[in-house]
Amino acid sequence: MTRPSPPPTGSEVAARAALETRDLVKRFRTGEGPVEVLRGVSFTLTPGQSLALTGESGSGKSTLLHICAGLEPADDGAVLVQGHDIARLSEAESAALRRGTLGLVFQQFNLIPSLDVDRNLSFQARLAGHHDPARIAALAERLGLAALLNRYPEELSGGQQQRVAIGRCLAARPAVVLADEPTGNLDEATGDAVLDLLLEACRDAGAALLLVTHSQRLAARCDGRLHLQSGRVAPA
């Protein structure tokens, strides 16, 4: 198992961990019986740290990310966000956690098509009650979106849309950013630029980043790497 180094002590982890998983197990029922997608996955992510989650298709990366985001329950094990076990949260508390503490970035951007760029950027921050127009303006400037604020998502290129999605996520000041192949739909140059932004912004904000990616090149740019193989953490 590859952990971000150096490994902290248990008490240090409890005090510092932004996201921690303990022996996560997830099974799916299929026509051929239950399939174990995650088989005891554990890792810890501290504030400001970035971790790349790699593995082949079907290795359980997205499932792990969804469980960390509280979108899907684990069958066994625990996920702790800032020390809170998300399995014990009600749906409303889980939703509040996603609004205020977690930030999600998807491969398909998942912007809200009925809102313009400005409203999309501020949407999650306003939901979380962290709305700061000055911060939104600064983010838009930094992400190269200042001239596009009145446009609608379908009027933007893939790279621009992903920058809006990252801006939306960071505007809410999340403690943990969970990004599911955020550059998967982008060409290499645009993907690199977007990842630069994401890493830099997370580092500046002190947010932990869990990045699902197929690319070894992109993974190498993170502070650590977690490789999944058949649901288990394996050497990369």
Binding site: A95, A96, L97, R98, L104, L111
Partner: peptide, 15 residues
């Protein structure tokens, strides 16, 4: 497809 992202962003299904 329109509602799932909102759910992911922190709106409950009931809401």
């Amino acid at each position: 497809a329109q509602l799932a992202p909102l759910w992911a962003l922190g709106l409950t299904r009931a809401r």
